[in-house]
Design a protein around this nucleic acid. Sequence first.
DNA 1: CTTTCGGAAATGTGATCACATTCACGATGG
DNA 2: CCATCGTGAATGTGATCACATTTCCGAAAG
Lengths: 248, 248
Amino acid sequence: MARHAAAAGEHGGMPGGNGGRRVPARDRVFDELCHWLLTGRIVPGRGVTLRGLAAELGVSPMPVREAIHRLAAEQALEIGPTGRIHVPAMSAARFEEIVRVRVLLEPEIAARALPHVDKALLATLKAIDAGIDRSLETGDVESYMQLNHDFHFGIYGAASSDVMLPLIESIWLQFGPFMRTVYGRVGTSHMIDQHELALAAIAAGDVEGLKGAIAGDILDGMQLLGLAIVGEESAAADGGGARPFDNP
Amino acid sequence: MARHAAAAGEHGGMPGGNGGRRVPARDRVFDELCHWLLTGRIVPGRGVTLRGLAAELGVSPMPVREAIHRLAAEQALEIGPTGRIHVPAMSAARFEEIVRVRVLLEPEIAARALPHVDKALLATLKAIDAGIDRSLETGDVESYMQLNHDFHFGIYGAASSDVMLPLIESIWLQFGPFMRTVYGRVGTSHMIDQHELALAAIAAGDVEGLKGAIAGDILDGMQLLGLAIVGEESAAADGGGARPFDNP
DNA sequence: CTTTCGGAAATGTGATCACATTCACGATGG
DNA sequence: CCATCGTGAATGTGATCACATTTCCGAAAG
């Protein structure tokens, strides 16, 4: 999830002779909020406030404000008419569009990444996929979502892309919160393992096979989400709906 | 460039009977900067500073900061390692990717918009296209860029899209500044008028015709830009750039 | 018991300030 | 004449403050 090059690795404030640049608090907050969105810690229905997040993150409301507005710019959060911040509502139409964009862009970037995937990365991807299977068995949703993200962006990142990659990240941030709310209710184990197909295609240098596997993976996973969302919508009369979790 | 519904028209504080909500300064600044980027008022190489823009726009640096960071989030501006703000450099690779994404997304959204284009909108589009021809004759680059933008987003906007439209707007913001720097040097008049084809396809309800016209328009226009950029980059070490487009 | 009203708490916004860092320009030394 | 260095101006960042608006909760009225 490193949207900022300098983000990784820093583990402590060491103002002295660190080779890297100083990471602005705004970027750290942004990365943290991205993580929360993608792993489902921020879910629809919960209030999101500047001062609340600021206190939780140990910074002033200022960097939080910038991170929030950046997320709003990417449609990952929404700023209501009165300025209130909330997770945008998902609809069947919106969801269908997300799937369409994913199927258009992600196989494309995967194809562009293929030539740059080396042995080491392939091994990493295999390890991630093994971790995914493990998470599915144990039912660790948060771990699954994290690893699934890592798997996809592990591939996509190999295509050094300043254009497509941010767009795809934006899309993921938009459906991330809903994966968490939905994955508890639908089965995930009967899916064909498109990740295996993708790995095989990568190993074989099969561009079309890779594109097909990515598209298949998207359609499989999103179909599950889509069914749940559509079902939720038709039963829309129930008040704000279940809030599966709360934030500490 | 109306990214925010309530933005247009407000010219003074009139707390009384205005039906709309108050528009935050941050959004007004953002819209203004978008306009400047898309019409070429902000071009690569010029310094962009917070306080400078703030003074120019008559606000404090605060709303400018947020607008700038939002533009940076959409890759329309870049924040250097030291925090300095500048227009990102264009490269052949980056440009090719932009074209690819445009060809993937814009025909798609146009197709989705087609069923919602009514007579009134079609008439508006024809008027815009006439204005474009006029701008090309008189060589009014800024007017041309504005109208070309209006033409495309006039169509795209008809597809009520919360997902694809922001992505496309982000892409336009990325190549906007370079259109201005380049359009002075290349001819534009020999282009096939793909806009006419698009209008005819809309009138006929021809989805595939519309998608083809949009794609053709993108490829025609961007090919001009691409040639100029590649030539600018350095004729010597061409690297893989030389095939800016393959097809959809 | 339901509805309405009022005020206190909370929220986002924007301005100003202090500060570390960086850039630009001129002086100085070779 | 050119390179190097130092000082001052400028820049982005983050915190704090004041304020208009909104939301929320409880009391009072029907």
